[in-house]
Write a protein that binds this DNA or RNA. Structure first.
Length: 421
DNA sequence: AGAAAGTTTCCTGCTT
DNA sequence: CAAGCAGGAAACTTTC
């Protein structure tokens, strides 16, 4: 890809750019505040109640093996873990079985659900996972914490860790066969965490079972609908927290008969896009996806025409809304989100004065390493990172604190105040 | 294609 | 002396 000739960022030093930054930040802030985080509930009350009654999470799930960060190296059987941050909101974990037959699980944590428990006694962990190449798509499941389980957990991420522990133990103990083209690995999980009524077992995919893109939407199975939904969420970075997946537990024929209003009911603002995408597939076939840029533009137009300024798609212009998943694209947001996420922080940063927004870098090298991982830059150092932080003084994102390793959020930083989260 | 924004890299000088 | 801070300069990457 051709690259523009390097230009001297002279505006950095002129003051003009600072104004621009401030104005843009303010505009973005407004958009973010009303955005994707509002209302993470995605299952209807009846659905949640059912899970509330049925979900039984054993206490002996070994959650202590996880520290604040889920994929910390794990001692004992089951192999080692490595965390990856994939595109968008995807978080991925890899598990290496003792026999070195690699099993890869991709776990998508639906934003919002993990961000904040909706009720003190009932943090909702909604996630769906799909496994690499070896096993078919795993149906989305919903876990509502059992009261006894929620009592001693500090966050729903911990709950998720516990759930994943059991799931992945299931995998590493050969609940399914590595290298099999299909299998039936998930009954134990579904038995534990989901109900047949809401998450019926999919027909197992066989070698002859076509992928959803090779079938007209009207002939999609439920599996195809899920695959399509998953594809849309990832491809267009839809904020899945607003999608009621229960409503999409339908066949292709049923899906195609859903009205735009029903899509909106089922998926909020994302429903508009999903409806738009589906109608385009029905009209144009899968060539609709051929030109990604055109498709994106079309979807943007759809967004504009529907005045959906705070939707999930728009969210990609607003990285700060993805606080819980620490996907912030800007350094200061990354730092802020780290401060606000004890699960991820690992003592790297700590507040000196929470109300004033003063914080201290405790482990400078670890912070640089973490930032480097985020930016896929293994040469990142604290020296370079701190230079970037110092640029924020100009824009009012940070203010100087005349102490080593201590910074303070400035008037143009948002989202760090406790009462404004 | 080109501009803007946001770093990243390198540097010198200074402070703790 | 090492680590960190401050900030100039230029290069680089991504996004629009």
């Amino acid at each position: 890809m051709p690259h523009p000739a390097p230009s001297c960022p002279s505006s950095l030093h002129t003051g003009k750019r600072e104004d621009d930054v401030m104005h843009k930040s303010a505009a973005q802030e407004g958009a973010c505040r009303t955005g994707a985080w509002a209302g993470s509930r995605s299952c209807p009350p009846a659905c949640r109640n059912q899970h509330s009654q049925q979900t039984q999470i054993p206490q002996s799930s070994g959650t202590q093996e996880f520290s604040a960060c889920l994929p910390s190296p794990r001692a004992g059987g089951g192999g080692s873990w490595a965390q990856r941050q994939d595109k968008g909101k995807l978080s991925a974990w890899e598990s290496h079985s003792p026999s070195e037959e690699r099993v890869t699980l991709y776990v998508t944590v639906i934003k919002g659900a993990v961000h904040k428990p909706e009720k003190p006694n009932g943090p909702v962990c909604r996630c769906y996972l799909y496994t690499g190449l070896q096993v078919p798509l795993f149906p989305l499941f919903t876990v509502l914490a059992a009261p006894a389980f929620s009592g001693h957990r500090t966050s729903s991420l911990d709950l998720l860790s516990a759930v994943l522990t059991m799931m992945l133990d299931s995998v590493t103990h050969s609940t399914f066969l590595p290298n099999a083209s299909f299998c039936d690995p998930l009954m134990s999980w579904t038995d534990l965490f989901s109900s047949e009524e809401y998450y019926p077992a999919f027909e197992h995919q066989t070698a002859g079972d076509p992928y959803w893109t090779s079938v007209h939407p009207e002939y999609w199975t439920k599996r195809h609908v899920w695959e399509w939904l998953q594809f849309c969420c990832e491809q267009y970075r839809l904020d899945a927290s607003g999608i009621s997946f229960c409503h999409f537990n339908v066949s292709g024929l049923q899906l195609c008969s859903m009205t735009q209003e029903e899509f909106r009911e089922a998926a909020g603002v994302c429903g508009e896009y999903l409806y738009f995408i589906l109608q385009n597939i029905r009209a144009q076939g899968y060539s609709f996806f051929n030109d990604t840029e055109e498709t994106k533009a079309a979807i943007r137009d759809c967004a504009d025409s529907n005045c959906l300024k705070t939707s999930g798609i728009k969210g990609q212009d607003c990285p700060s809304h993805s606080r819980a998943s620490l996907q912030s694209s800007h350094l200061w947001e990354f730092v802020r989100d780290l401060l606000l996420s004890p699960e991820e922080n690992c003592g790297i940063l700590e507040w000196e004065d929470r109300e004033q927004g003063i914080f201290r870098v405790v482990k400078s090298e670890a912070l640089a390493k973490m930032w480097g991982q985020r930016k896929k830059n293994d040469r990142m150092t604290y020296e370079k990172l701190s230079r970037a932080l110092r640029y924020y003084y100009k824009t009012g994102i940070l203010e100087r604190v005349d102490r080593r390793l201590v910074y303070k959020f400035g008037k143009n930083a948002h989202g760090w105040q406790e009462d404004k989260l």
